[in-house]
Design a protein around this nucleic acid. Structure first.
Length: 423
RNA sequence: GGAGAGAUGGCUGAGUGGUCGAAGGCGCCCGCCUCGAAAGCGGGUAGGGGUUUACGCCCCUCGCGAGUUCGAAUCUCGCUCUCUCCGCCA
């Protein structure tokens, strides 16, 4: 959520920023509603002040056994007026909040401007895509042949976009989860968190999934529960409504969770294989930082995610997303794209975003620099480190042999119980 | 699921209709004392919103939401959460 005071004081700057994302149209309406609200608020607060003063006077008169009927009757009339004005103020606030909650974050100055991924900028590449002496097969073919995944059974027990992992396929999934967690915990200094996979609505609003993207979420039962689309939601919201001591920052969490996405609007895309599933596993990195540190922490978060691909020896590139391709809440976002031989190009495997204070303002996550200092909003960041299913796909495809077997990346062998080849 | 108890500031804990945003204690901050520290002494110490060049002033908030009243932390109703006991259960 953007700061209403910032919009009030710098409407042109905000409008320009939002226009980079095609979302600047509501600012004038917002300003008008804001002005009207403040006008009505001043009126109703003056009346409330009068009520408070007179009520105290009534108390004094009664204590002195003096009749106060006139004052009481006068306040009854004032109360009617307060009630009416309060209603107007509340409905104006609802309209203001509806707009504020629907506005995306402002892009940072160095974010390339453009409507979609065509404007993204490649930052760097690591590793050389392997040249095959044979025609490389897609991961779904290799995996089904080796009995690592079963797409038909996934469809039978659940539906489209669900997959059953079996045998060494399930083992590989679990090995990757443990490998990534260990790396980030032991070498990158993150604290492990294992959160619930169901969260309440306030969490979803806090990180920006709601109210705008309800159709992408799975809602559970009659209650207030949502299946998490990413660990970002529960982990960032750990500190919702809190004021943290400044010396605790930066806070760095790593969490393995399953993730659940309705994939509304993705019908027909990536229908084969592990690339786009309703349920997938992911190891997620989350940081809470002081505002002045978030840019630096963003870069180091990307490097922490890159380290996973480097250790797995998977070729990848880092892409800076354009203003139009970034997620709703992001101010700046790097994607890590891994080389997939079956596609013949790079494919997103991690998304590392700096949200600045956008989520913190929604979720009321603040900190105090000094013990007596004023609370300020933290900056929140997160990134996949990495998406497990896409990593499995990348390993299967990049490590495939002519005979259809898969070499296990060296760092994973201990996590695979010493198995070096999947055949 | 059944029965009962509770929810007040960073923590603890008073407060059952009026001057209470809230006593006391702890913690924290500033000062005095000290070579320095501790102890002691004095003062300060919630969040949000509106307004103001500023000092300041005003409004709201005692789990959340309604209601009664001129006036609610205090009374009424609903909800959420926590604790104890029983049942069920991985």
């Amino acid at each position: 959520m953007l700061d209403l005071k910032l919009i009030r004081n710098n409407p042109d700057q905000v409008r320009a920023g939002l226009n980079k994302r095609g979302a600047g149209g509501l600012i004038d309406e917002l300003l008008q509603l804001d002005e009207e609200r403040r006008d009505k608020l001043a009126k109703v607060e003056a009346l409330k002040n009068k009520r408070n003063v007179v009520s105290k006077e009534v108390g004094r008169l009664k204590a002195a056994k003096v009749d106060a009927t006139n004052l009481i009757n006068e306040m009854k009339a004032v109360n009617e007026e307060i009630k009416q004005l309060d209603g107007i103020v509340r409905s104006l606030e609802e309209k203001i909040n509806d707009i504020l909650y629907s506005l995306p974050n402002l892009p940072q100055a160095d974010v390339p401007v453009g409507p979609d991924e065509a404007a993204n900028v490649e930052i760097r590449r690591w590793g050389e895509p392997r040249s095959f002496s044979f025609e490389p097969k897609p991961h779904w073919e290799l995996g089904e042949k080796l009995n690592l995944f079963d797409f038909d059974q996934g469809a039978k027990i659940s539906g489209a976009r669900f997959t059953v992992l079996k045998g060494l396929g399930a083992r590989l999934e679990r090995a990757l989860i443990n490998f990534m967690l260990d790396l980030h915990i032991n070498e990158h200094g993150y604290t492990e968190v294992f959160p619930p996979f169901l969260v309440n609505r306030a969490c979803m609003v806090g990180t920006g999934q709601l109210p705008k993207f309800e159709e992408d979420m799975f809602k559970v039962g009659s209650g207030d529960y949502y299946l998490i689309p990413t660990a970002e939601v529960p982990v960032t919201n750990l500190h919702r409504e809190e004021i943290l001591a400044g010396e605790r920052l930066p806070i760095k969490y790593v969490a393995y969770t399953a993730c659940f996405r309705a994939e509304a609007g993705s019908a027909g895309r990536d229908t084969r294989g592990l690339i786009r599933q309703h349920q997938f596993n992911k190891v997620e990195l989350v940081k809470l930082t002081k505002p002045e540190d978030s840019a630096r922490e963003h870069e180091s978060l990307v490097q922490d995610a890159e380290r996973v691909l480097q250790l797995l020896n998977l070729p990848y590139r880092v892409v800076l997303l354009s203003s139009g391709d970034m997620g709703f809440a992001a101010s700046k976002c790097y994607d890590l794209e891994v080389w997939l031989p079956s596609f013949g190009h790079y494919r997103e495997i991690s998304s590392c975003s700096n949200f600045e204070d956008f989520q913190a303002r929604r979720a009321h996550i603040r900190f105090r620099r000094e013990p007596e200092g004023k609370p300020e909003f933290v900056h929140t960041l997160n990134g996949s480190g990495l998406a497990i299913g896409r990593t499995v796909a990348a390993i299967v495809e990049n490590y495939q042999q002519a005979d259809g077997s898969i070499t296990v990346p060296e760092v994973l062998v201990p996590y695979m119980g010493g198995i070096k080849v999947i055949k």
